[in-house]
């Protein structure tokens, strides 16, 4: 049986820890920008996870294409989220959510 590469093992652990930190950030804040940043941590963890699993399975094209789309959509998501935050800030004058 082929041995699992050390880097892939650590990547799975790091991705899990990043997800935990992201979930902690999501629950521990009322600031909308910090909530957005915490969701970005989870996004980064998921992309690392895609590559870690793909390096185990011997895939190179699928994770590349998948992650290119994911990052492109993340860029779109950040801009849309930011537009919403600006509208919220103009109406309420604060970045805190109830």
């Amino acid at each position: 049986m082929t041995q699992v590469p050390f880097t892939s093992e650590i990547a799975l652990v790091v991705a899990t820890m990043l997800v935990a930190v992201g979930v902690y950030g999501l629950m521990n804040s009322k600031n909308v920008i910090r909530v957005l940043l915490s969701s970005e941590i989870i996004l980064n963890a998921s992309i690392l996870l895609v590559f870690a699993v793909s390096s185990l399975a011997g895939r190179s094209y699928t994770p590349l294409i998948f992650s290119v789309f994911a990052i492109g959509m993340a860029l779109t998501e950040v801009v849309v989220a930011f537009a919403s935050i600006i509208l919220y800030y103009r109406q309420r004058g604060t970045l805190e959510v109830d």
Binding site: V4, V13, T16, V53, S55, R59
Partner: peptide
């Protein structure tokens, strides 16, 4: 999350990506 990861990756046939 880690349990799901371990369960889903345990059956993967390991090979180097091209």
């Amino acid at each position: 999350f880690f349990s799901v990861l371990v369960l889903s990756t345990s059956s993967i046939a390991i090979s180097a990506p091209p």
